[in-house]
Design a protein around this nucleic acid. Structure first.
Lengths: 139, 139
DNA sequence: TCGATGGTCAACCATTTGGTTTAATATATT
DNA sequence: AATATATTAAACCAAATGGTTGACCATCGA
C-alpha cells in the first residue's frame, strides 16, 4: 500500500473503468458508440439479451463514466465519454517501457550489430529477452 | 469497422486482462513488479491480507498473462509480462481520437486510413457479434 | 383516451469474486 | 530426522455480477 504510486492514487476511477471494460458486451457497446449517439434500444438490438440486460450494461458503463446519456422524451440517447478511457491509457503508459523500450533496444542492438559486424550473424545465447517476437503494429 | 470487430472479437484476452486490472491490489502488485522480480511473499507483505489471498490475486494476474512465474525450490518468483498490457493499450488506441486534440485527431484519422489501406481486406459489414442479430422478444 | 413504444425497477437466480481459515505439499535448515 | 519456510489447495462465506422475467412509468401517435 505504501508502494501505491501516484498513478494509483490519482485514478480512483480505474476500478470501475477496467471492470466496465472487462465485459465483451460492454466493449462492443462502446465501439458502437464510436459511430455516434445511439439510443438504449439501438444499442441493445445486436445482442441476444433482454433489453433490461443491455440496459444494465449501459448503466455500468455510465457508472464508470464511459457513457453519458441525455433523455429526450421517452428516449435515452447514449454518447461515448472518452475521458476515463484516457485515464486508463495513462495508467497503462506507466508500463509502456516494458514493451516499447525492449523493442527500441532491440532495434538499437540490431542497428549496432549491423554496423559493427558487417554480416556475421550472432545469436546471443543467454539473451535476456526471452522472446522479442512481439509483433510491432503498424507505424 | 471490420478491424475493430477483429479487435473486439479476436482478443479474448481482453476480458481477463481488464478484469485483472480492475482490482487495486492487483494493479499495485503489477506496479511493484516494475521494480523487478519479486517472490509471492514479497508481493504479499504490503497488503493487509492473508498470503493465500495475495496468492490468489497473483494467480489471477498470471491467468491473464500479466505475470510470469518461475519456481526455484520452494520460492516462486514473479515477473511482469507486459505484452498483454500492450494489447489492452492497443484496444484503447481505437478510442484515442475521442479525447485527443483536433490535430491529433487528424493524425489519427490519417493513420487509420493508412492501416485500412495496408490490409485491403474488405468484408461484408454484417459480421456482428457472436450472436446473430436474431430479433428479440416477440414476447 | 387508448394502445404501442422506450426504458427502468425490483425480485430472483446461478455463478464469480475476493476474502478467510485450515490443511497439505515441497523445499530448506539445523 | 525434525522443524521451519514458501506456497498452494480446499472448503467456506458474503457480496457482486450477469442474466432473466414481470410489473411499472412515461411518452408518443392515432
Amino acid at each position: 500500500m505504501l508502494l501505491n504510486h501516484m498513478v494509483e492514487f490519482q485514478t480512483p476511477h480505474l476500478d470501475a473503468v477496467f471492470h466496465a471494460l472487462s465485459d465483451p458486451t460492454r466493449r462492443a457497446i462502446l465501439y458502437r458508440l464510436t459511430e455516434g449517439e445511439r439510443t438504449v434500444s439501438e444499442l441493445a438490438t445486436p445482442f441476444n439479451m433482454s433489453l433490461a440486460g443491455a440496459s444494465k450494461h449501459i448503466k455500468v458503463l455510465e457508472g464508470a463514466g464511459l457513457v453519458r446519456r441525455h433523455v429526450q422524451g421517452r428516449t435515452h440517447y447514449c454518447q461515448l465519454e472518452a475521458a476515463r478511457l484516457a485515464e486508463a491509457q495513462e495508467w497503462l503508459r506507466t508500463y509502456e517501457r516494458f514493451w516499447t523500450t525492449r523493442l527500441d533496444n532491440l532495434e538499437e542492438i540490431l542497428r549496432e550489430e549491423d554496423r559493427a559486424s558487417a554480416r556475421s550473424s550472432q545469436q546471443s545465447p543467454s539473451s535476456t529477452a526471452k522472446s522479442d517476437k512481439t509483433s510491432r503494429s503498424t507505424k
